[in-house]
Design a protein around this nucleic acid. Sequence first.
DNA 1: GTATTTATTGCAACTGATTGCAATAAGGAG
DNA 2: CTCCTTATTGCAATCAGTTGCAATAAATAC
Lengths: 151, 151
Amino acid sequence: MSRHPELVASLREAGHRWTPQRESVLAALAESARHLTAEEIIARVRVRYPYLNKSAVYRNLAFLTRLGLVHQTDLGHGHIEYELHQDPHHHHLICRHCHHVLQIDHAALATLGKKLERDFGFQADLDHFAIFGVCKKCQTRAAKTAKRAAR
Amino acid sequence: MSRHPELVASLREAGHRWTPQRESVLAALAESARHLTAEEIIARVRVRYPYLNKSAVYRNLAFLTRLGLVHQTDLGHGHIEYELHQDPHHHHLICRHCHHVLQIDHAALATLGKKLERDFGFQADLDHFAIFGVCKKCQTRAAKTAKRAAR
DNA sequence: GTATTTATTGCAACTGATTGCAATAAGGAG
DNA sequence: CTCCTTATTGCAATCAGTTGCAATAAATAC
């Protein structure tokens, strides 16, 4: 019936249902190691389940996100990207010039989390964070261009 | 002609033009002390300029953002919010339960910025950051509910 | 003033995503 | 198994935002 028996049981206890549509969305994410856009998920799900409605996909992505099974991130590509939640926690540094995405691990943000907790009593969701900025390469490239322009 | 003579001059030097539409979008933001959604901006602009097309508003918001005059933030209300860029830099802690927005100043994130620079050579845009999580109030409320459920 | 260049606008078509609602079907009870 | 409740689906309408393109008009040169 399902390859996620404990998950399914806990969903049912909470009054939710385990439908083929829901399973297929989760399966599409589980079979991909990387982020997928909603459009990619719909395409993959329809390989097995050709007439699945897109609103069911969007609603299940929101549902799985609420459960904490799925993460939504805006990596600046114009579409939200989804991925299965899996440890270790990581974050992304996204260059606004070359759009390169550098993955960093949670340690870099642990201090900030503690600080927000201590100073404001705020329990931040510092998981899978997207930070925009300028990467090393583009900084040096920009410096060179500025120099050339100055001459 | 305009209440922003230096701005207009520098735009012209860069090959841009200063149109009534562009001015009216900037004016709408300047007259509001707080964040506005695109819809609110369109409504305010149309008080003086009834037939302005929405795509001109969106394009000018993007344009002013590229110039660094305007900031876009997703405060989790389902719409992007815009505001005139003004110091001092600040950030937002947004509770995912009660949706309360707590404004904090830049000091809290300064350490993170230095760390990203030092460890990864990444110059992060740590300006007007939105951090989601659970606020103090909702944490204590959740703790009480859990206790009650345990009985 | 007129002519030229081209950034910007207005419009209409379109995209990704959301929503209201009736129909369906999952899960539990008998 | 059948019956019942209601979470979920499918569909169509809708919404916020984007895009292609021809028309307009801002800025510059003359």
